[in-house]
Simulated scan of single mutants.
Amino acid sequence: MQMCDIGGLRLNYRIDGPEDGAPVVFANSLGTDLRLWDDVVARMPDGLRMLRYDKRGHGLSDCPPPPYSMGTLVTDAEKLMDALGFREAIFVGLSIGGMIAQGLAAKRMDLVRAMVLSNTAAKIGTRDMWEDRVAQIEEGGIAAISAGTMERWFAKPFYQTSGFPAWQHMLERTPQPGYIGCCQAIAGSDFMTPTSGLRLPVLGIAGSEDGSTPPDLVRETVDLVPGSRLEIIRGTGHLPCVEKPDEYAALLTEFFRAQGAI
């Protein structure tokens, strides 16, 4: 466990791989922490310097009171990468992490040379939808949305695995202010215009059973960037890196190799 003070906020992070490795940054989804990437990182080839972190309000990072804005979450990632020397990185973002990736690429192309947009979109849901979710949490805690979230996160077969309860626990133990703050950040975000102006290599990844960002939604966003491509991992929901890490890591490895990172 390592903490980085980015100016009044401490973010928990982990770096795997050699100091001279090609830089890669992973940003996780709403309601998860950096352990989301454990099985993928373990399957990646040698020669990569991989940074994972808990965004504000999640995991072991500081949890300031909401509201949060997407601009603030993007700035957090920017400051962390600057502090740790991650430049010209491949940025892998899942769900809200993919929104952070889009915002960061539009703001600091010196930090991001390629992106993996996984189970994400330029705009996710509606403001009313997110306000309803926040109201549910304020009334009944995160447990009130847990069952519905699991249905969107995972395909049915994963429910029978020994690992399933841990992910439900991770969601339910997310600090409530942090979860609400990130909901508010997503509600106010629309990257259609800035993402359509990006010119960099992009790989999109979708889960065929994803109830949060279905494949067509991911495709709509990925297609905004010329030359991008979309891969669909069958039989997975919103977190294919958890359900099928072998397939997920293979897609990343192929994309990284095409960028000359390995």
Rank of each mutant, 00 (worst) to 15 (best):
I6Y: 01
G8L: 10
P18L: 05
D20T: 13
V24T: 02
V24E: 03
V25Y: 01
V40I: 04
P45K: 09
G47M: 05
M50H: 02
M50A: 15
K55Y: 13
P64C: 02
P65I: 00
L73T: 03
V74L: 09
T75S: 14
D76Y: 06
A77V: 02
K79L: 00
F86H: 00
F86D: 00
L94R: 01
A105K: 04
A105H: 03
K107F: 06
R108E: 13
R108T: 09
R108S: 15
R113L: 08
A114W: 05
V116I: 14
A121H: 13
A122P: 07
K123G: 09
I124Y: 12
T126V: 06
D132L: 14
V134K: 15
E139L: 13
A143W: 00
A143P: 00
I145A: 06
A147Q: 11
G148S: 04
E151Y: 01
Q160C: 00
T161K: 04
F164A: 09
W167Q: 03
L171P: 04
P175A: 02
Y179F: 15
I186S: 07
S189E: 00
G197W: 02
L203P: 03
I205Q: 02
A206T: 01
E209H: 14
D210A: 08
D210L: 08
S212T: 11
L224T: 12
S228P: 10
S228H: 12
I233F: 05
R234L: 08
E243R: 10
Y248K: 08
L251T: 10
L251W: 10
L252S: 08
T253F: 03
E254A: 15
F256C: 07
